[in-house]
Design a protein around this nucleic acid. Structure first.
Length: 244
DNA sequence: TGCCATGTTAAACT
DNA sequence: GAGTTTAACATGGC
């Protein structure tokens, strides 16, 4: 589930808890659960794939990894999967199979918000600058870098490369500057399409490359290949996506 | 049924 | 020590 746009939806779903006091906390997150008792949840933010719970003197960052999710009131997973359970007066909030971290800085100092694909502070220029600082890197790895494109996951990566007609194994220093800028712009633009389609529960039908078999532009098979340092699957058309 | 995956990181290797 | 590979997490869809 959790690429950046999905986190926006989690944030909205949890807005009902803003300003509410935590009565009790528990779970297998490995942090001191006593910290929460009596504390008010001041706000909910996101950074990339992180959900941020703002408390008076600390912030909890929740990363859902591959299988994590949350539920309200209904416990719908095995006990050991419950990493954090926050009990409010009226509701219980569960977070499953996620990485939970605590930090004390304000979240805008903890993270570079201009790197967050969903944040209004997103900067195309900074993304291009960071890519240029990694000349030997594959573009598929750069797009998955959470330091450059926080919130982009494997689906968005593949769709952005398809839409910008760029082969995932292109090397950054060989890619024209205008194309790098186009990739940065498309990563943000597409993420809002992704959000819209997820709200309407029609995300998968809009995929053009990810999990697809045929290129809709060329009518030839889409290649599936593990690419880049992290060997994540790339789906691409060898004909219309240029290898730089 | 078995395999794969929208993710990350620590441990175990070379 | 650096770089690479494996394992672990735990679930749902096909």
């Amino acid at each position: 589930m959790p690429e950046g746009p999905s986190l926006i939806l989690v944030k909205e779903a949890l807005d009902q808890f803003r300003g509410k006091k935590v009565l009790e906390a528990s779970g297998h997150a490995g942090i001191d659960m006593e910290l929460f008792a009596g504390k008010k949840l001041l706000g909910i933010e996101t950074f990339g794939k992180h959900l941020l719970l703002l408390f008076p003197k600390f912030t909890i960052s929740i990363h859902f990894l591959l299988f994590g999710w949350y539920s309200i009131d209904k416990k719908n997973r095995v006990a050991k999967a419950i990493k954090l359970k926050l009990e409010f007066a009226d509701h219980k909030l569960y977070f499953y199979t996620c990485k939970v971290e605590l930090f004390e800085k304000s979240f805008d100092k903890q993270y570079d918000l201009s790197a967050d694909i969903m944040n209004d502070k997103w900067s195309n220029a900074k993304a291009v600058k960071k890519m240029n600082a990694l000349p030997k890197t594959f573009i598929c790895d750069a797009l998955m870098s959470q330091d450059i494109f926080a919130g982009v996951g494997n689906i968005i990566k593949n769709e952005v490369l398809y839409n910008t007609k760029t082969h995932p194994e292109s090397i950054i220093e060989k890619i024209p500057k205008a194309k790098l800028l186009a990739i940065a712009k498309e990563s943000r633009r597409y993420s809002f399409d992704f959000l819209k389609w997820r709200i309407d529960d029609e995300l998968t039908k809009h995929w053009l490359a990810y999990n697809r078999k045929i290129c809709s532009r060329c009518n030839i098979p889409i290649i599936k290949k593990e690419t880049g340092k992290t060997k994540r699957s790339s789906f691409f058309c060898e004909n219309c996506q240029i290898l730089y």
